[in-house]
Structures are given as C-alpha cells and as structure tokens.
Amino acid sequence: MASLYLLIPIALVFCAVAIRLLLWAIDNGQYDDLDKEAWRALMDEEPGDTKGDNREPDEPHR
C-alpha cells in the first residue's frame, strides 16, 4: 500500500489543476450562459432561427 503515498499526491495535483482550469473557464465567461449552450445544439430546428437556411429573410415560408 506504499503506492498510496505517491498516488494520492498525484490525485491532489490533478484535482488542483482541474479546479484551476474550471475557475479560469468561469472567469473567462464560458459558463455565463448555461441555457444558451444547452440550446445551441438545437438551434437549427428552431422556427425563429434562420441559420443553415438559405431563404431570404423576407421571403415567405413555403
């Protein structure tokens, strides 16, 4: 079980790095809009979204 004395500190280092990265991402604004990111994958099929749709904006739906 002596390996614990090596593995646990390594786990702690990883944990510290993960926290650091997460805090950086939050400060960077990447988590500012959780709803938006959840929505983004679905945006193409939203009725109000014209992304990926070559129709002219003012041309009526067919």
Binding site: G29, D32, D33, K36, E37, M43, E46, G48
Partner: peptide, 21 residues
C-alpha cells in the same frame, strides 16, 4: 413580433454573445 411569436430563442442565443460583460 419575434419575441411574442415564441421565437425569442433566437435572441436568447445571440445575447450570450453581445452581452458578455
């Protein structure tokens, strides 16, 4: 009109970009 016809998701999506403080 866009908002009232339930398509506000369009703006919701965009505001994330324009309003990053």
């Amino acid at each position: 009109m866009i908002s009232e016809s339930g398509m506000a998701a369009f703006y919701e999506h965009r505001t994330g970009y324009s309003e990053r403080p």
